[in-house]
Design a protein around this nucleic acid. Sequence first.
DNA 1: GTGGTAACAAATGACATTTTTTGTTATTTG
DNA 2: CAAATAACAAAAAATGTCATTTGTTACCAC
Lengths: 206, 206
Amino acid sequence: MSEPKPAPPSAESVDLRILDLAADHVRRFGAARLTIVAVAREAGMSHGNVYRYFPSKEALFDAVTEQWLKPVESDCRRIAEAPDPAFDKLERIIVSIHRSYRDKLESDAEIFDLFCRSFEEGRTIARKHRTRIQSEIQKVLEEGTGGGMFEIADQRRALALVFDAAYRFMSPVSIRLDRNVPRGQMDGRCDRCVRLMLRILASGKI
Amino acid sequence: MSEPKPAPPSAESVDLRILDLAADHVRRFGAARLTIVAVAREAGMSHGNVYRYFPSKEALFDAVTEQWLKPVESDCRRIAEAPDPAFDKLERIIVSIHRSYRDKLESDAEIFDLFCRSFEEGRTIARKHRTRIQSEIQKVLEEGTGGGMFEIADQRRALALVFDAAYRFMSPVSIRLDRNVPRGQMDGRCDRCVRLMLRILASGKI
DNA sequence: GTGGTAACAAATGACATTTTTTGTTATTTG
DNA sequence: CAAATAACAAAAAATGTCATTTGTTACCAC
């Protein structure tokens, strides 16, 4: 009874603390078994207060997903904005996404599931993520076209081609379906598939 | 009370009749709401008798799925065995699969769902279907390599590339995810993506 | 006014009970 | 003996009840 308030005066802001606890809960027990009441209890507050930070359970799930998605997106952006040839950047972006997804699938299956669900249901958070990645790829594509590195007549079609040809390696649902294929094999196939697609982009006739 | 036995002396054999009734049930109410008892009732027999033809409900579902899968596979085989250039045959096979899947998704979503589930769960029936398609594609690939139409050093890798690059258009789960994208658009993207992949196969460096 | 609690109706989940379904086997029918 | 039924145990699903959770709001303290 020496500590009626076990919650330390954490340096993080309250919403981040809730987010962390929720993520941990999902990691350990899965999304299905998470309740706002339990998270509030762990955070040492009334459950009603949690709603001051997250308007609903779904919003909390979205925030947990988003928190993981952010580094994936910033990796993309960093690669896209680096002063490297567009050709290399495009390859790096796609491979980076594939690696990030697969990492999460293996290290945090439950949270990856959350992301997949969001994706399958066409939730806003998943759509926005997709849009942000798309816009980074588009930038690199345009940059490469301007620099004469890519021979692209129709930007829209080229963008679609990138997503179509690399779909197996960029779609969370696909990656989850391949969870039993050894990782090394999928990585190799991703590399080869992307490299060939890039060759198409480089050598025109899109 | 004039017809205590409404079941006509159908020309089909009993197992086909059961299969048809089951498929119809799935079509109308979805797989979740199908019961062996209900199918037996519709077939005008005791439910125990259905087990003489199908050892379990799953087996019945598999049979329903398989019945639809057969024409897809025989289309593939017919294309593969035709006396046409390997290049064209490969294109036709992939496009044909994509069209068949998408047709089924639109005309018979519930049965397509059955197939997707089988696929996601890695059931034998789905794996065999995949293997059969794979072997047809492999044949065409080998034929094209022998005839000098494709420049392929590593058959295994080439086969993987075909499946990877066309994944979005050959995986039932992916196709279902794209159900809201207009069909015409997906068809066009499939055609272009496949055509570009074929160009890679033709112009070597795999 | 930021960070919190208390109280509350509506929605959800958990649980015991009953009914249906599944799958097997012994028995009947023709 | 081939084809079907009837009877049955085990598993699964539906039902109804009751506790918990959700989402809101009004209110308190600093």
